[in-house]
Amino acid sequence: MLPLYPVGEVNWLTSQALYHGLPVLGEEGVILCWPKESYVSLGCHQDWDEFDESSNIPAIRRQVGGSLVYLDNQQVFFQVIADPSKHPRLKTPEQWYHFALYPVIASLKHLGFEARFKAPADILVDDRKISGNAGGQIEDSAVVVGNILLEFSPENMARVRAGSTLLKGAFAEAMARHLVTLNALTAPGRVWTREEVMRLLARFFHQEMGAEIQDSIPWDRWDEVLDQTGKRLLQPEWLHAAGYRPPYHQVKVREGVYLRQTRRDRYPEVIAEVNTESKVITALWNCPVQFSLPLNAAGIGEQIQDSPLRLILYELLDVRTKDPMLS
């Protein structure tokens, strides 16, 4: 039985130090919390250059996967820290995600929403993302962390992401279409409080996972390690590290949906929204020619006569060509 700690509001650094620190202490747990201040969290292997430092907001690099996210006090975090030796049936990342996210999906279904898991780690309601998640191994623990959006500002998220004004604008527009919040899903005027959502999650982590809700938070036992862990996560050599660099500029909107912009000299202003599962371009910004969308590889070949533009769109769609321009 995992102990469940309804921590509530903490400072921004502690909201990250908790799930990094419990593995150091060798403790299991389910943490429910939210940050007092807004901040940015970069993925473990993400390139620091993807963060727009001019946004003047605190940033941290986490030890679990995924990409850069803007976090604030309109999101309730859930963090599952477990000892794999006590859960021998859970071997793959997919199995860990199902284990940790099932109570969250059950909570949303209880509210009447058609929530579903979207591999590898999103929760969608009506095909729009309400919860982004990531996981990994920290010390000897398996960790899955995520959030439920009560409110979300696509503009704030776009502001902290490095890129041209055009890319930021397209990103905000795409997120507005692909993300949804708890408040937007409920009747007009119904505003969810963070405490309500925390109580709801605690109830379903107890019902579905058997987590035992704790009456108090053992800060005395945790404080020293959380303090050390927070400082470690801010070490410049860790925080400012280089990392994954795809062949094009890319921002993720939700699982399977990305905005991409070429790094090449030709048509650098064209931005494509790509659905990587159906392998189609679903939206285009600043494209000099109008096309009927969605556009797949065959459609690009048929509709686009301009060879450089055709090749750029092939590249953004991950279609391999033998053209020397893209080699």
């Binding site: 993925g43 679990v64 996967g65 996981g135």
Partner: peptide, 11 residues
């Protein structure tokens, strides 16, 4: 070292 797949980081 570490390895990432599906938003999961293994050591």
């Amino acid at each position: 070292g570490s390895i990432e797949s599906g938003k999961w980081v293994g050591q």
